[in-house]
């Protein structure tokens, strides 16, 4: 396929910029959000890739006229007070618990409220202290870590590896999402196992699939893939299939190199 890049500069003129992904207001919104967002941190939280064109075709191949479409990378928007529902109460309790425990307020990078869910983006430095606060503070009482999973936002995204903690408070019947992002070159996140023993296998899976290293985990080994597997399969730069598999001495070729009988 000939990659004629002629249309690329035209694509950057941003023909289409939906209101939902305007990035110019992030700083303003961040200040309204109780000054919680670290200025300038919002672009780092980008969780999408830039796209241009409608069908991924560049140059003369695109006869649709949509080649000029440009979509900026998605950035989760910092939320404004009031957050609505129980979210204000939770954030207030969290901030208070943090100040009681000497955790700096900058440990929170951003607070986002979307589709009726509260997401708190955290720095990894104070993560374990935060977990203790989130679990034990009488106003928070998130006794259960429902789920922990990794997300890879792709090669172009800074700090592309995210760890998502789905917290559940059975006392108050509330949910909250904590999120930490790290870089592939420095994929270290403090382990949640000392606070939430249930995180054990979740963290092993996130390590297995994304290569996120949980510092302090009792035995961080692969859990789903074989022990001697190369690479982390759910990273975006890891292909779907195409891996030669050795089975009892026989080399099984990847799907695209097998014989076809049609």
């Amino acid at each position: 396929m000939s990659q004629d890049k002629q249309s690329e500069p035209g694509g950057a003129t941003s023909v289409d910029s939906p209101a939902s992904i305007v990035t110019g207001t992030t700083d303003d919104a961040a200040h309204q959000g109780g000054g919680l967002a670290v200025p300038g941190s919002a672009p780092e939280l980008a969780t999408g890739v830039e796209r241009s064109g409608m069908f991924g075709i560049h140059g003369t191949g695109d006869t649709s006229g949509y080649g000029g479409l440009h979509r900026a990378p998605y950035v989760p928007q910092p939320a404004d007070r009031p957050y609505g529902g129980y979210f204000d109460e939770v954030v207030d309790a969290l901030l208070q618990a943090m100040s009681e425990r000497g955790i700096p307020a900058t440990a929170i990078e951003q607070i986002t409220v979307a589709v009726g869910e509260l997401t708190v983006y955290l720095q990894r430095d104070h993560l374990q202290a935060l977990f203790w606060a989130v679990r034990d503070d009488p106003g928070l009482r998130f006794e259960t870590l429902s789920s922990l999973s990794g997300v890879d936002y792709g090669e172009q995204v800074p700090r592309r590896l995210h760890v998502v903690y789905e917290m559940l408070s059975m006392t108050y019947r509330r949910r909250m999402r904590l999120e930490v992002s790290v870089d592939v070159a420095d994929p270290y996140v403090p382990s949640a196992v000392p606070v939430y023993p249930t995180a054990d296998w979740h963290e092993r899976e996130a390590y297995d699939m994304f290569g996120i290293v949980f510092a302090g985990h009792p035995a961080l080994t692969r859990i789903l893939m074989p022990d001697d597997w190369d690479g982390h399969p759910q990273r975006k730069d890891y292909p779907l299939g195409g891996i030669a598999v050795e089975y009892k001495g026989a080399e099984i070729p990847p799907p695209d190199q097998r014989r076809v009988y049609s």
Partner: peptide, 24 residues
């Protein structure tokens, strides 16, 4: 629409959660 969502339901074994992320 881009974003993420988590939905948990009660399956015969307990909380079955689904975390989906969309880039739009």
């Amino acid at each position: 629409p881009a974003g993420q969502a988590y939905m948990a339901i009660e399956n015969p074994r307990g909380e079955l959660g689904c975390h989906v992320v969309s880039d739009g």
